[in-house]
Protein backbone atom coordinates (compact mmCIF):
# COMPACT_ATOMS: atom_id res chain seq x y z
CA UNK A 1 0.00 0.00 0.00
CA UNK A 2 1.38 3.36 -0.90
CA UNK A 3 0.31 5.01 2.31
CA UNK A 4 1.77 2.33 4.46
CA UNK A 5 4.89 2.46 2.40
CA UNK A 6 5.09 6.18 2.95
CA UNK A 7 4.58 5.71 6.63
CA UNK A 8 7.40 3.25 6.74
CA UNK A 9 9.68 5.67 5.00
CA UNK A 10 8.70 8.44 7.34
CA UNK A 11 9.27 6.10 10.21
CA UNK A 12 12.73 5.23 9.03
CA UNK A 13 13.63 8.80 8.33
CA UNK A 14 12.35 10.06 11.60
CA UNK A 15 13.99 7.24 13.42
CA UNK A 16 17.28 8.47 12.06
CA UNK A 17 16.57 11.96 13.32
CA UNK A 18 17.23 12.72 16.90
CA UNK A 19 14.61 15.42 17.04
CA UNK A 20 11.58 14.13 15.31
CA UNK A 21 8.93 16.78 14.81
CA UNK A 22 5.66 15.90 16.46
CA UNK A 23 2.97 14.67 14.13
CA UNK A 24 0.85 17.77 14.41
CA UNK A 25 3.65 19.75 12.86
CA UNK A 26 3.15 17.83 9.65
CA UNK A 27 -0.15 19.58 9.13
CA UNK A 28 -1.17 21.66 6.18
CA UNK A 29 -1.09 25.05 7.81
CA UNK A 30 1.31 26.39 5.23
CA UNK A 31 4.15 27.14 7.55
CA UNK A 32 4.99 23.90 9.19
CA UNK A 33 8.59 23.04 8.69
CA UNK A 34 10.89 23.60 11.58
CA UNK A 35 13.17 25.98 9.71
CA UNK A 36 10.20 28.02 8.60
CA UNK A 37 8.93 28.18 12.12
CA UNK A 38 12.34 29.28 13.29
CA UNK A 39 11.98 32.22 10.93
CA UNK A 40 8.47 32.82 12.23
CA UNK A 41 9.80 32.97 15.76
CA UNK A 42 12.40 35.52 14.70
CA UNK A 43 9.80 37.61 12.94
CA UNK A 44 7.47 37.53 15.90
CA UNK A 45 10.30 38.54 18.16
CA UNK A 46 10.86 41.54 15.92
CA UNK A 47 7.24 42.57 16.20
CA UNK A 48 5.60 40.84 13.25
CA UNK A 49 2.00 40.36 14.27
CA UNK A 50 1.21 37.78 11.62
CA UNK A 51 4.14 35.73 12.77
CA UNK A 52 2.90 35.90 16.32
CA UNK A 53 -0.54 34.80 15.18
CA UNK A 54 1.00 31.84 13.39
CA UNK A 55 2.85 30.83 16.51
CA UNK A 56 -0.27 31.21 18.58
CA UNK A 57 -2.24 28.98 16.28
CA UNK A 58 0.52 26.43 16.21
CA UNK A 59 1.19 26.29 19.89
CA UNK A 60 -1.82 27.42 21.85
CA UNK A 61 -4.07 24.39 21.34
CA UNK A 62 -1.34 22.05 22.54
CA UNK A 63 -0.49 24.30 25.40
CA UNK A 64 -4.13 24.42 26.37
CA UNK A 65 -4.40 20.66 26.39
CA UNK A 66 -1.31 20.38 28.50
CA UNK A 67 -2.51 22.97 30.99
CA UNK A 68 -5.83 21.21 31.17
CA UNK A 69 -4.13 18.14 32.57
CA UNK A 70 -2.82 20.36 35.36
CA UNK A 71 -5.68 22.66 36.27
CA UNK A 72 -8.73 21.15 34.62
CA UNK A 73 -11.48 23.49 33.64
CA UNK A 74 -9.51 26.63 34.51
CA UNK A 75 -7.11 25.83 31.71
CA UNK A 76 -8.49 28.49 29.38
CA UNK A 77 -7.90 31.30 31.84
CA UNK A 78 -4.50 30.05 32.86
CA UNK A 79 -3.35 29.60 29.29
CA UNK A 80 -4.65 33.04 28.35
CA UNK A 81 -2.60 34.55 31.15
CA UNK A 82 0.39 32.64 29.91
CA UNK A 83 -0.09 34.14 26.45
CA UNK A 84 -0.21 37.64 27.83
CA UNK A 85 3.12 36.91 29.40
CA UNK A 86 4.46 35.41 26.19
CA UNK A 87 3.26 38.36 24.12
CA UNK A 88 4.93 40.76 26.49
CA UNK A 89 8.27 39.01 26.67
CA UNK A 90 8.66 37.51 23.23
CA UNK A 91 10.87 40.42 22.18
CA UNK A 92 13.42 39.12 24.65
CA UNK A 93 13.16 35.50 23.68
CA UNK A 94 16.20 34.13 21.95
CA UNK A 95 15.97 30.76 20.28
CA UNK A 96 14.38 28.59 17.62
CA UNK A 97 10.96 27.01 17.43
CA UNK A 98 11.91 24.13 19.71
CA UNK A 99 13.21 26.55 22.26
CA UNK A 100 10.09 28.60 21.86
CA UNK A 101 7.90 25.59 22.57
CA UNK A 102 9.89 24.86 25.68
CA UNK A 103 9.76 28.48 26.76
CA UNK A 104 6.02 28.79 26.29
CA UNK A 105 5.43 25.49 28.06
CA UNK A 106 7.55 26.70 30.96
CA UNK A 107 5.53 29.88 31.24
CA UNK A 108 2.26 28.00 31.02
CA UNK A 109 3.38 25.52 33.64
CA UNK A 110 4.41 28.24 36.04
CA UNK A 111 1.07 29.93 35.55
CA UNK A 112 -0.71 26.66 36.19
CA UNK A 113 1.23 25.96 39.36
CA UNK A 114 0.66 29.54 40.55
CA UNK A 115 -3.00 29.04 39.88
CA UNK A 116 -3.08 25.85 41.88
CA UNK A 117 -1.17 27.43 44.74
CA UNK A 118 -3.42 30.44 44.74
CA UNK A 119 -6.51 28.30 44.92
CA UNK A 120 -4.83 25.94 47.35
CA UNK A 121 -5.64 23.04 45.17
CA UNK A 122 -3.80 20.01 44.11
CA UNK A 123 -3.59 19.16 40.46
CA UNK A 124 -6.76 17.32 39.74
CA UNK A 125 -7.63 14.82 37.18
CA UNK A 126 -10.57 16.74 36.03
CA UNK A 127 -12.49 14.10 34.17
CA UNK A 128 -14.30 11.50 36.21
CA UNK A 129 -14.21 8.02 34.89
CA UNK A 130 -17.83 7.94 33.86
CA UNK A 131 -17.41 11.14 31.93
CA UNK A 132 -15.19 9.80 29.25
CA UNK A 133 -16.69 11.60 26.33
CA UNK A 134 -17.84 10.22 23.08
CA UNK A 135 -18.05 6.75 24.38
CA UNK A 136 -19.31 4.55 21.66
CA UNK A 137 -22.84 3.34 21.91
CA UNK A 138 -23.21 -0.05 23.56
CA UNK A 139 -23.93 -1.73 20.30
CA UNK A 140 -20.62 -0.58 18.90
CA UNK A 141 -17.79 -2.96 19.23
CA UNK A 142 -14.58 -2.33 21.03
CA UNK A 143 -12.69 -1.81 17.82
CA UNK A 144 -14.88 1.08 16.81
CA UNK A 145 -14.39 2.49 20.26
CA UNK A 146 -10.72 2.77 19.52
CA UNK A 147 -11.14 3.93 15.99
CA UNK A 148 -13.36 6.75 17.06
CA UNK A 149 -11.36 7.72 20.06
CA UNK A 150 -11.75 11.44 20.21
CA UNK A 151 -9.14 13.92 21.29
CA UNK A 152 -11.18 14.58 24.38
CA UNK A 153 -11.32 10.93 25.30
CA UNK A 154 -7.64 10.49 24.71
CA UNK A 155 -6.81 13.48 26.90
CA UNK A 156 -9.12 12.20 29.60
CA UNK A 157 -7.38 8.90 29.58
CA UNK A 158 -3.97 10.53 29.84
CA UNK A 159 -5.25 12.70 32.66
CA UNK A 160 -6.02 9.58 34.62
CA UNK A 161 -2.36 8.74 34.85
CA UNK A 162 -0.28 9.76 37.83
CA UNK A 163 0.40 13.40 37.45
CA UNK A 164 4.07 13.27 36.57
CA UNK A 165 3.46 10.63 33.93
CA UNK A 166 0.54 12.51 32.46
CA UNK A 167 2.51 15.71 32.39
CA UNK A 168 5.50 14.15 30.69
CA UNK A 169 3.39 12.42 28.07
CA UNK A 170 1.53 15.63 27.36
CA UNK A 171 4.71 17.64 27.07
CA UNK A 172 6.31 15.13 24.78
CA UNK A 173 3.45 13.98 22.61
CA UNK A 174 1.15 16.97 22.56
CA UNK A 175 3.38 19.98 23.12
CA UNK A 176 6.15 18.32 21.14
CA UNK A 177 9.16 18.70 23.42
CA UNK A 178 12.07 16.31 23.48
CA UNK A 179 13.12 14.43 26.57
CA UNK A 180 15.89 16.83 27.46
CA UNK A 181 13.67 19.86 27.30
CA UNK A 182 11.04 18.16 29.39
CA UNK A 183 13.65 17.16 31.91
CA UNK A 184 14.86 20.72 32.16
CA UNK A 185 11.35 22.04 32.45
CA UNK A 186 10.46 19.66 35.23
CA UNK A 187 13.80 19.78 36.97
CA UNK A 188 14.44 16.07 36.46
CA UNK A 189 17.02 13.98 34.76
CA UNK A 190 16.28 12.91 31.17
CA UNK A 191 16.54 9.28 32.21
CA UNK A 192 13.92 9.78 34.87
CA UNK A 193 11.70 11.51 32.35
CA UNK A 194 12.02 8.62 29.90
CA UNK A 195 11.28 6.08 32.59
CA UNK A 196 8.21 7.94 33.76
CA UNK A 197 6.98 8.31 30.20
CA UNK A 198 7.51 4.64 29.55
CA UNK A 199 5.54 3.73 32.63
CA UNK A 200 2.85 6.14 31.62
CA UNK A 201 2.47 4.60 28.21
CA UNK A 202 2.25 1.14 29.67
CA UNK A 203 -0.36 2.27 32.08
CA UNK A 204 -2.27 3.87 29.27
CA UNK A 205 -2.28 0.54 27.54
CA UNK A 206 -3.86 -1.03 30.57
CA UNK A 207 -6.43 1.70 30.70
CA UNK A 208 -7.27 1.06 27.09
CA UNK A 209 -7.62 -2.61 27.79
CA UNK A 210 -9.99 -1.89 30.61
CA UNK A 211 -11.94 0.40 28.35
CA UNK A 212 -12.32 -2.25 25.73
CA UNK A 213 -13.47 -4.95 28.05
CA UNK A 214 -17.20 -5.50 27.78
CA UNK A 215 -18.91 -4.17 30.85
Amino acid sequence: MPLRHKCRIISQVSHAEELHPPPWLAGDAGVTRSEDLDAVVRAARNGDEDAFRTLYRQIHPRLLRYVRTLVGEDAEDVTSEAWLHIARDIAFFDGDIDGFRGWTATIARHRALDHLRHHKRRPVHHTPVGELPEQPAPDDTETTALDSLSTQAALSLIARLPRDQAEIIMLRVVVGLDAKTVARLLGKRPGAVRTAAHRGLRRLEHLLNDLERPR
Binding site: C7, S11, S14, L146, V173, A179, A197, L204
Partner: peptide, 16 residues
Protein backbone atom coordinates in the same frame (compact mmCIF):
# COMPACT_ATOMS: atom_id res chain seq x y z
CA UNK B 1 6.05 6.75 20.10
CA UNK B 2 6.72 9.76 22.26
CA UNK B 3 8.57 11.29 19.35
CA UNK B 4 5.49 10.91 17.24
CA UNK B 5 6.50 7.95 15.16
CA UNK B 6 3.66 5.80 13.94
CA UNK B 7 4.78 2.71 15.74
CA UNK B 8 3.94 0.60 18.73
CA UNK B 9 0.64 -0.94 19.75
CA UNK B 10 -2.01 0.39 17.39
CA UNK B 11 -4.52 1.30 20.04
CA UNK B 12 -1.99 3.22 22.03
CA UNK B 13 -0.73 4.88 18.87
CA UNK B 14 -4.28 5.87 18.03
CA UNK B 15 -4.72 7.35 21.47
CA UNK B 16 -1.58 9.45 21.18
Amino acid sequence: MLRGEPTGPPRLAALL
